[in-house]
Design a protein around this nucleic acid. Sequence first.
DNA 1: ACGATATGAGTAT
DNA 2: TACTCCTATCGTT
Length: 285
Amino acid sequence: MPEGHSIHRLAAAFDELLAGQRIDVSSPQGRFADGARVLNGRRYEGSEAYGKHLFQHFDDLVLHTHLGLYGSWTFDGDASFVAPHAIGAPRRRIGESEELAGEITPTDVWAPPEPRGQVRVRLATNHGIADLTGPNQCRVLSAPETLAVTSRLGPDPLRADADPERFITRARQLRRPIGELVMDQAVISGPGNIYRAEALFIAGIHPWRPGNRVSIARLRTLWDVLAEHMKNGVETGSIVTTSEGEQERFYVYQRAGLPCLVCTTPIVLEEMAARKLYRCPRCQR
DNA sequence: ACGATATGAGTAT
DNA sequence: TACTCCTATCGTT
């Protein structure tokens, strides 16, 4: 899935492609027919990403989506729609994986493609489309309802308004393992299973250590590591947490049984709160 | 044709 | 801790 960095990329992409325009909103699959009718023809005012939540403002109404484990947005359009992209090469898909958009010729006459698979929502202009499949949240909210959602989220390291002290204070109050707290969106919003594993490794923290037994200094380091790597994820569109020169993308994620890149001890795979947890038994204390 | 899996999270027990 | 939701993909029969 899309961790927080993907959602921030989406917000930027939508601002660039749709802001200020009237949008044709439909639900090819039909499961969002009512919402699509309400939003259809409204002006796109802007996007906001908060943790893994995306809020898209259509006049006074908000399309709130959450991609869950396997949701994704797929883009297609003519050169004016897809070509310029503030955050790197145009991507056809933002979700489980991103692919480079195919070759686009300015002279192409573009026509909207048939929806592929279960498209819950299609946002369309004359120049392009964005199709949403597999979200675990997709609904229309008022502004106050939007605030009610974000007010339950912990600070998002990718947001300028994030307060790391809120994360540190909360973590220090809880006895649950720090590995669980990093995945708890009420404690810190945006990180998912990959950033969890990798940041705890880089910060040298044992995932099962209770939050209230991780020092303030190490929690601050953990926040900084998360912020640094998630920002890199926003810029590049992919998660790579290893240092330059390293062949692997990850230190521990999906490396069960393989030698730790730092100390060669085999990486351990366990289960934590029904999710896979990877750690180095020697580097993380 | 199945079945397992996935970068998530709410609700029930 | 388990079940539920949502979908595509890849491996195995």
